[in-house]
Structure formats: structure tokens, C-alpha cells
């Protein structure tokens, strides 16, 4: 019997080794372990054994059964794994084919830049203010210390509706309207459309966008102006950005400055984008002129402030490498979908 058991064991192991399908596995299980299987039939002969032999053979038969069961289980695992592998292989697709799904739209590149700048200043505690585009001469010029016949008025090539009403040439009138409300302190920015009589070409448009900022509080200094704008420049152009302030002239600020930032294209080494200067002019700024504060009902002895303003088309064009301003107004979806 011992030999018979060992023979069954050997046969079973050999059979299992060669099995490659679930069906064969089931058959082998029945053949060796089933009710009419080979092991069972051997065990049926246990009665013939002596009292001493019976436990030994019984033990042996159990061992053989357990081992075959274990091997069967292993074979099953092996087959299942192979089956899964085959299934996965058959399901392979070309993942380089284009995706399907909701077509999202795109923000206009100008809006992306405006939103980004707005967010930077909101993080610094600035509110977003708005004002009319068809504006009174008073707000656009006079209240900003640009009296009638001032050359600065001429420089801006204003569109007039009539003697008193015009299309604002700058977002600065919103400064005045904000100050007039008399709620202090003031920290506002104002992005918006402005108008100047420039013919349309690759770098000019009679309609363009500016963003204006104004801070008025007790004890505001030119150092604060520099600090706020340096933070802004780093946020917008990256941590390594350096700024440079140059004296300039605006009628509504004194002292006035222009702020240059290190060229984002070359990092300040000098290149085609910055015409070799290493710096790019970004914005005009200055300490709010005491006359302007006074005209808007704020006491320049008690309060001081700074203001800044920048053209947004140029920032947008430089950022995305857009060389023709007209693209911004054409609205070709092939253009808009790039942003």
C-alpha cells in the first residue's frame, strides 16, 4: 500500500506539472482526490491492514492527500494568473490615441494676466475697484493735476464725446472716484479698458487695458511703494526677479518713477527681448501728489499714498511671446485655445 500511495503521489505531481487549463485541473482533482479517485480507492483497502500498520498508512495517506491538495491549489493560482495575464494582454489598447471627453473652453490671455495680477494684489489686501469708461474730463484730467492745455493732455490723444465727456485715457480716474468716497485707508486696484487715438497696428490699439493701484493711509512712504511693487513683480515674474526704479514724471504723483523688472527672457543678461538692457519697463508709479489728495478731499498733511499703473497688453504679449497685438482682438479660436 505504501508503494501504491507513493505511486499515486508521484503520478499526481507529474500530472499537475503539465496542466495548462482549468478543465484539466478539475479532472485531475477528481481523478486523484475524488470520491471514486485513486487515493480514495486505495484508502478503501485500509481495512485489510493490520492494527499496527493502519495508523502509519493512514498518516501517510493524509500527507499525500494534503500535499496533492496544496499542489492543486498552487496549480490553480498559476492558471488564474495566466488567465488574467492573457485577458489583460488581449485588452491592450493604443493609449496614444486622443482622449475623449468634455471640451473645456479657454480664458482670454488678457484675462489670465489680469486675474493673476488681481489675485496677487488681493493677497496683499487690495480691493478691486471699477469706474466708468465714458468719463468726465474732470476725473480723467483735472482732478489728476492735468489742467486744461497741459501738454500731458495732448500726449494722450483723447477721444472726446463733447467738451466735458471723454473716453478715459487711463484707469487713474478710478483713483479719484475712490478717494472721493472718503473711506480710508484705501488699498485698491482697478483693471479696465482705456482709450487713446492710436491707429491699429502690431503694437497699438485704440482700446487697451490698464491696471491702476492706489494706497492711501497714514504714514505711507516711497519705501512702501517700492516694497509692494517688488513683491508684486516677484509674484508675477518669479522669485529671482529684480526691480529698478527710475525717476520719471507724472502730473498726479510726486516723486514719480518708472519701474523696470529684470528681463524674464534673459534674466538680466541682455537679449533681444530687452534690447540688450537686461531690464524691461513695467509700470509707472509714484507718491500721490498732495494736490491730488487735496482735490479729492484728503488732507495731505495727515495722509500720504502711492499709486501705480501699467499697460496690460504689453505684459501679456511679452509673457506669451505674442508679437502682434491684433491677435488679441481677432478671437480666432485657434489662437484662444492655446491659453
Amino acid at each position: 500500500m505504501k508503494e501504491k500511495l507513493s505511486l499515486i503521489h508521484t503520478k499526481a505531481l507529474e500530472t499537475l506539472k503539465e496542466i495548462s487549463q482549468m478543465k484539466e485541473l478539475e479532472e485531475a482533482k477528481v481523478r486523484f482526490l475524488g470520491k471514486k479517485g485513486e487515493l480514495t480507492s486505495v484508502l478503501k483497502e485500509m481495512g485489510k491492514l493490520s492494527q499496527e500498520e493502519r495508523p502509519l498508512i493512514g498518516q501517510l495517506a493524509n500527507d499525500v492527500r494534503q500535499d496533492i491538495e496544496k499542489r492543486l491549489e498552487e496549480a490553480k493560482k498559476r492558471l488564474l494568473a495566466a488567465e488574467m495575464e492573457a485577458k489583460l494582454a488581449s485588452e491592450t489598447i493604443d493609449v496614444t490615441m486622443p482622449g475623449r471627453g468634455a471640451q473645456c473652453g479657454h480664458k482670454h490671455p488678457m484675462s489670465i494676466v489680469i486675474d493673476e495680477i488681481t489675485n496677487i494684489f488681493m493677497g496683499m489686501g487690495y480691493e478691486v475697484a471699477e469706474g466708468p469708461e465714458v468719463e468726465k474730463d474732470y476725473y480723467n484730467f483735472e482732478a489728476l493735476n492735468i489742467p486744461a492745455n497741459h501738454p500731458a493732455k495732448d500726449e494722450q490723444d483723447t477721444f472726446y464725446i463733447n467738451g466735458d465727456i471723454l473716453l478715459r485715457t487711463q484707469t487713474s480716474p478710478v483713483q479719484v472716484r475712490t478717494m472721493e468716497k472718503g473711506k480710508l485707508p484705501i488699498r485698491v486696484i482697478c483693471p479696465g479698458k482705456v482709450y487713446r487715438a492710436d491707429e491699429v497696428d502690431a503694437t497699438h490699439s485704440p482700446i487697451f487695458h490698464q491696471l491702476e493701484g492706489l494706497v492711501v493711509d497714514r504714514g505711507i512712504t516711497m519705501g512702501d511703494l517700492k516694497g509692494a511693487l517688488a513683491v508684486f513683480a516677484k509674484e508675477l515674474f518669479g522669485e529671482d526677479t529684480k526691480v529698478r526704479f527710475r525717476p520719471h514724471h507724472f502730473p498726479f504723483t510726486e516723486p514719480s518713477a518708472e519701474m523696470d523688472v529684470t528681463c524674464f527672457a534673459c534674466g538680466g543678461k541682455g537679449c533681444r527681448v530687452c534690447k540688450g538692457e537686461g531690464y524691461i519697463e513695467l509700470l509707472g508709479c509714484g507718491m500721490v501728489h498732495p494736490k491730488v489728495l487735496k482735490m479729492s478731499g484728503i488732507d495731505p498733511e495727515e495722509y500720504s499714498g502711492f499709486a501705480f499703473g501699467m499697460g496690460l497688453e504689453r505684459v501679456t504679449m511679452q509673457r506669451y511671446g505674442i508679437t502682434d497685438l491684433r491677435l488679441l482682438f481677432e478671437n480666432d479660436v485657434k489662437f484662444l485655445k492655446q491659453f
Binding site: V128, G223, P247
Partner: peptide, 26 residues
């Protein structure tokens, strides 16, 4: 402005205004 120009705009130390805090918002 004359003082600042010849002292040097770029020598003025940048600071962040303390002042009265305001909430940045739309």
C-alpha cells in the same frame, strides 16, 4: 523728488506698509 533722485531711488529701502489692515477682495 529732487532729494530722492540724487540720493538714488534704488537706495530707498523697500518696506511693506503696516498701516490699517484691509481685506483684499472682489
Amino acid at each position: 523728488e529732487e532729494v530722492a533722485r540724487f540720493y538714488g531711488y534704488n537706495k530707498i529701502v523697500p518696506t511693506l506698509a503696516a498701516g490699517t489692515p484691509t481685506v483684499g477682495k472682489k
